[in-house]
Amino acid sequence: MPDTPPPEIARTLTLRVAVTMRRERAPNAWEDWRHTPHDVALDDGTLGHTPRTLRDDGRERLTLHPGLPLLLHADEGEGYHLNLSSGAPVWFVMWRGAEDDPSEAAPEFVTLSYNEAGRLLDAQERVDNVPLPAELVQMLQAFTSAHYRPEPKQRRRPASFQRPGDRR
């Protein structure tokens, strides 16, 4: 019988996060603007619902984007495991620039799954990462441990030990 997760850990966990985006004006001769996620934090609902500027000195602007959902799904366990086992777990932030104004950009999606981030990159989306704080690494580890069971490794016999008709 396969191991089943304890009933007290839900198969789906929904959190809210706030992403702080950093915008640099003319960071080099080839770009007018550069956008990057600067920070991600849990949002307890006190940060509001609309983006707001935290700091703008004309050269650099930090804008807080609260209320983004972060969904953890039991079937993404391998992706969470890969993120945790990387040695430096991260938030993966997918963001888009405004079509009509290249000086604006906003986060669209946040995940902790390495596989989900890879699928977004395969779809030509912009995905950057931000270090994950230690207390959230522990939470992600608990969720992953409850739901992820690696596939057992299958030993493959070398071709030289197989009958000629069974070799590939």
Rank of each mutant, 00 (worst) to 15 (best):
D3F: 14
D3N: 13
D3Y: 14
P5T: 10
I9W: 10
A10S: 15
R11D: 15
R11G: 13
M21C: 04
R22S: 08
E24V: 09
E31F: 13
D32P: 07
H35F: 15
H38K: 01
V40S: 02
A41W: 03
A41R: 15
L42D: 02
D44L: 00
G45F: 06
G45Q: 06
T53Y: 05
T53R: 14
G67P: 09
G67R: 09
L70G: 02
A74D: 12
A74F: 01
G77K: 01
G77M: 09
E78A: 02
E78D: 01
G79N: 01
L82S: 10
N83A: 02
L84R: 06
S85L: 13
G87D: 12
W91Q: 01
W91C: 02
F92N: 07
G97R: 15
D100H: 14
P102C: 03
A105F: 04
F109M: 10
V110C: 06
L121V: 13
R126M: 11
V130M: 05
P131N: 08
L140W: 09
L140A: 06
F143Q: 00
R149W: 02
P152H: 04
K153P: 00
R155W: 07
R157G: 01
A159V: 01
F161G: 05
F161W: 09
P164N: 11
D166L: 11
R167F: 11
R167L: 10
